[in-house]
């Protein structure tokens, strides 16, 4: 079982309407690994996460989640293989309270227990204070913590996290970094999309660079330091 990758993308092509956004994406993530997708805006990183969940238009190729082919499945079935998704826009429901948001995602029937509410509030004490506030009253940082926190209860083992550090104060980014480290030590598998590669390099095992809807380079955090010039060229606009 430990040999089965958590996620395999094999020559994945995905469209939005008529335009081909992913042009053959190949990579895999092993259980317990943390991998970051880096790249310029429009390189296809967010689309890769959305394609995994079937939230794009037409898809081709193969996407296996914990060994199961998911390409023909509707979004809700794909999620039930144990995926937790934290979208770039955070997707906090304005009309639900903080705790209602937290309790919204259903628990997966996959035998892997998620974190309890107490554990989540330990990880993010701010959320405990704001538990009865409506979603729309939370600050950007609180919303981001909530977006991450609410997928930890469900028993999801593979987390897809889109730009969680974007636009947040350094102290909040640190909290999120700590949370990710804590999740890694609990065996979660994590696929990050990041703009901030310093944040990402400190947290993950490998960094994949995307351009024009393909993976063009794979580096480890150590290699990243050696090749700082190349990296900034790959990411510069």
């Amino acid at each position: 079982m430990s040999g089965t990758p958590a996620l395999v993308l094999d020559n994945v092509r995905a469209w939005y309407g008529e335009s081909l956004v992913l042009q053959g994406v190949d990579f895999q993530v092993l259980p317990g690994e943390a991998v970051t997708l880096l790249g310029r805006n429009g390189a296809g990183r967010t689309t890769t996460l959305r394609a995994i969940l079937g939230l794009t238009g037409r898809r081709q190729g193969s996407i296996r989640v914990f060994g199961e082919e998911t390409l023909g499945q509707p979004t809700y079935r794909i999620a039930r293989h144990g995926i937790g998704y934290c979208p770039e826009e955070r997707g906090i429901f304005a009309s639900l309270s903080c705790e209602e948001n937290l309790k919204l995602p259903p628990l997966f029937d996959n035998g892997s227990p998620g974190l309890s509410l107490d554990e989540i509030y330990q990880l993010f004490p701010n959320l405990a204070e704001r538990r009865h506030s409506p979603g729309k009253a939370l600050s950007g940082g609180e919303q981001q913590m909530l977006a991450l926190a609410r997928i930890l209860r469900t028993g999801a083992k593979l987390l897809l996290l889109d730009e969680i550090s974007e636009g947040l104060a350094p102290v909040i980014v640190d909290t999120l970094g700590e949370a990710i480290r804590a999740l890694r030590s609990r065996g979660y598998t994590i696929l990050l999309v990041e703009q901030n590669f310093h944040f990402a390099a400190a947290l993950c095992d490998r960094l994949l660079f995307m351009e024009h809807g393909r993976i063009i380079e794979t580096l480890t955090p150590v290699q990243l330091e050696d090749q700082a010039d190349r990296v900034s060229r790959l990411l510069s606009v």
Binding site: L55, P74, T75, Y76, I83, F93, S95, L96, L104, T154
Partner: peptide, 22 residues
Amino acid sequence: GAYLRAATENASLVEAFGVNVP
């Protein structure tokens, strides 16, 4: 009802949580 209210705001995200939205 909470699913319903959430789906009214953002149906595809609720489906991405594993709820059978269709």
